[in-house]
């Protein structure tokens, strides 16, 4: 047992420390301030975590100019990812969980952003490898976010599901918040629709790093 002294402090008859007087008031004030600051900080963090990314208008049909391969015999799932977005790790995790439940009914593609002027190796991150490790997933590059723009994906982790006819069934994020794994509406919707044909909702919020500047997108539009 270590022996520490409580110097410069008041103690009761049994040696228990006691706060008193101005020191007690100062302590209470300090604790109060600290509590408020921490609560505020945590609130900011939670707010940031729960703040969805930019979501441009969604196409109802599979874009014809898209170079991504579509499955005409079943469902086609496309996820847009930024190779360095830390939040996308949670999206890939949820995708892996989703596909493990839906089986071969879904033809999935994860396309990673390749900005202009960067080498391909810039895209070969752990997220790339993580995506490749998911069975039945094809991993491709999306130079200058061309595909993302076609599909209306603004942030990394945005996921879209199309049926065999090329109709958009679902579009949005499959994580409950920014970079946060867990039960969420997006994954549940896809899973329910693929397995049971029941569509709970068609869109959810997506959380992740922007794939391209929002201003640029607006200018193009």
């Amino acid at each position: 047992m270590l022996h520490h002294t409580t110097s410069n402090s008041h103690t009761d008859h049994a040696g228990r420390p006691q706060a008193c007087g101005r020191r007690g008031f100062g302590l209470r004030a300090l604790v109060t301030f600290w509590t408020l600051a921490v609560v505020a900080g945590m609130a900011c963090l939670w707010d940031y975590e729960s703040a969805p990314g930019y979501t441009p208008p969604q196409p109802d049909k599979w874009p014809t100019s898209s170079k991504i391969e579509r499955n005409p015999a079943g469902f086609t799932l496309v996820m847009f990812a930024h190779p360095h977005c830390p939040c996308t790790r949670a999206s890939l995790g949820e995708l892996h969980r989703l596909l493990s439940r839906t089986g071969s009914n879904v033809h999935a593609t994860v396309t990673f952003l390749k900005p202009v002027g960067v080498d391909v190796s810039w895209c070969m991150t752990d997220l790339w490898q993580k995506a490749k490790d998911i069975p039945q997933v094809r991993v491709t590059l999306d130079p200058d976010a061309r595909e993302a723009r076609l599909f209306g994906a603004g942030v990394s982790g945005h996921t879209a599901l199309f049926d065999s006819s090329g109709n958009r069934v679902f579009s949005g994020g499959i994580t409950p918040s920014r970079g946060h794994e867990g039960n969420n509406n997006g994954r549940n919707t896809i899973e329910r629709y693929v397995l049971q044909g029941e569509l709970l909702r068609s869109t959810t919020c997506a959380y992740g790093c922007p794939l391209y500047p929002v201003a640029t997108d607006l200018e193009q539009k």
């Binding site: 900080g41 963090l45 977005c85 830390p86 939040c87 810039w122 976010a145 790093c209 794939l211 500047p213």
Partner: peptide
């Protein structure tokens, strides 16, 4: 998550500030 990205551009991730400050 050292940085947050916007295309090829990046900046310090809010998580890092949160870890540091909060």
């Amino acid at each position: 998550s050292p940085r947050t990205w916007q295309g090829a551009a990046s900046q310090t991730h809010p998580h890092l500030w949160a870890a540091l400050l909060l």
